[in-house]
């Protein structure tokens, strides 16, 4: 899978590059409008992460050019502006998702994965990990071909942890992803624990396990 990050802030770019490379993606970068224009003109990517505020142009213009040339790369707009207008404009121009800064690395993976999944499964959406299979289209989960009934939050937690498998997912990142942005001022994220406890119970026969990491977050491991 080949990704292109268009981002003018070098440290931001470096962070994104590092974390995505760790997920075994091939990552290319562009730091301004003209470099980006050149790259998308010459190469094909599976997913493009696009910052809209670039020093020499507007990211939305790049998106227009991209869609006008008939390319169907997945595009995730990354913006520090978190403005509704930009979000609507971006999505109307054919962007797949809109991710406001700052975001958690685990959230970035989840968004990239979701875009790639939508583009590549083509009617056969199916993720396997250990003896667990997940069908994102229908939100069904099977353990050794036996259906596992999960409520909405349990499913979202599982999906998020699987997307970020073998990596630390902080409680904050998990809470914001599953319970939405508005939960973020709740006095503690300990309430996540009861959902995790239920999920663990349901995954008794699965070969994956959710490990707590020093009370800071969780990590999904495959039992070999």
């Amino acid at each position: 899978m080949k990704l292109l990050i268009i981002e003018d802030e070098p440290e931001m770019l470096e962070n994104m590059r590092q974390t995505l490379e760790r997920q075994h993606y091939i990552v290319e970068t562009a730091t301004d409008y003209s470099a980006a224009l050149h790259k998308i003109g010459v190469y094909d990517y599976d997913c493009i992460l696009l910052d809209i505020t670039l020093p020499d142009g507007n990211g939305l213009e790049l998106l227009k050019t991209l869609k006008a040339s008939g390319k169907d790369e997945g595009v995730i707009i990354v913006s520090a502006k978190d403005s509704l207008d930009d979000k609507l404009a971006g999505l109307n121009l054919g962007a797949d998702d809109y991710l406001p800064k700052p975001f958690h690395m685990s959230e970035l993976h989840a968004r990239v994965k979701a875009v790639l999944r939508r583009r590549h499964f083509d009617g056969n959406p199916h993720i396997s990990i250990g003896n667990v299979s997940i069908f994102p289209e229908t939100r069904e989960v099977m353990v050794e071909n036996q259906p596992l009934v999960l409520n909405r939050k349990e499913y979202d937690i599982l999906m998020y942890l699987i997307t970020n498998k073998k990596r630390l997912v902080t409680k904050t990142a998990l809470a914001e992803h599953v319970w939405g942005d508005h939960i973020d001022q709740a006095d503690s994220f300990d309430f996540i624990y009861s959902q995790i406890k239920n999920l663990r119970k349901k995954l008794e026969h699965a070969t994956i396990t959710i490990e707590a990491v020093y009370g800071v977050g969780y990590k999904l491991e495959v039992i070999s």
């Binding site: 802030e9 440290e11 931001m12 962070n15 994104m16 590092q18 974390t19 760790r22 520090a80 502006k81 978190d82 406001p100 800064k101 700052p102 975001f103 958690h104 690395m105 685990s106 990596r167 630390l168 902080t170 800071v216």
Partner: peptide, 20 residues
Amino acid sequence: SHELQTPLAISINKLELFLE
């Protein structure tokens, strides 16, 4: 507030990477 977003994002992400 806008200007703060990027440095915040960088710090958070660097720490997350470091933790891993």
